[in-house]
């Protein structure tokens, strides 16, 4: 298996696409997926449970120091930044907001790029700010694979479009094609 982890950044319009992705991946999809979805500071984590119920994979909130395991989809908890350590465990911080966001996509992506180098896939989906652009650039610099949702198909095209100002992603795909691409990896 060439890739060891997938990081996804998503903001407004995210709930719909996350539902589709988490429900579509098959039971034997091994590569762990780590997601930052922008949510409010006081959001409870009910929606993670809902995604879990509809998914073949185990969807959960990332715990601090938790070891990243295959076959799981992890979400950053509300009001915390999520980082990945080189020993493939999670760290949480309450540092200042980045791009007005906590959790911030850039924080996850930059630490994931350092930890996984060229064994990482970074994906930026729908959203209406520029969080994730710096992070996916770092993933590319470290040799990882970069994908954005085709802005034409995104509920909020600004976030994937912002990536195009910084790098040329390896793939620009609709959600359906992102799923097909991921399934072919295994």
């Amino acid at each position: 298996m060439r890739y060891e982890a997938i990081v996804i950044g998503v903001s407004s319009g995210g709930m719909n696409v996350l539902k589709i992705i988490s429900a579509a991946l098959p039971t034997d999809f091994k590569i762990p997926i780590i997601v930052v979805q922008h949510v409010g500071a006081h959001s409870d984590s009910q929606w993670i449970q809902l995604l879990n119920e509809k998914s073949n994979l185990h969807v959960k909130e990332a715990d601090e120091k938790e070891k990243i395991e295959n076959g799981k989809i992890y979400f950053a908890p509300p009001n915390y930044h999520l980082l990945i350590e080189k020993d493939k465990t999670f760290s949480l911080t309450i540092d200042e907001r980045v791009n007005f966001a906590r959790p911030a996509i850039d924080v996850l992506f930059e630490s994931a790029a350092e930890a996984y180098r060229n064994k990482l896939i970074g994906i930026v989906l729908t959203g209406s700010n520029n969080d994730g652009t710096k992070g996916i650039k770092r993933i590319k610099e470290c040799g990882g694979l970069t994908i954005i949702q085709d802005p034409k198909t995104a509920e909020s095209p600004y976030m994937p479009m912002s990536v195009l100002t910084a790098i040329e992603p390896d793939h620009i795909l609709s959600i359906e094609n992102i799923i097909a691409f991921l399934i072919k990896l295994k």
Partner: peptide, 9 residues
């Protein structure tokens, strides 16, 4: 300290 955090700072 957690290294990813320290590195970032």
């Amino acid at each position: 300290y957690s290294q990813a955090h320290i590195r970032r700072r």
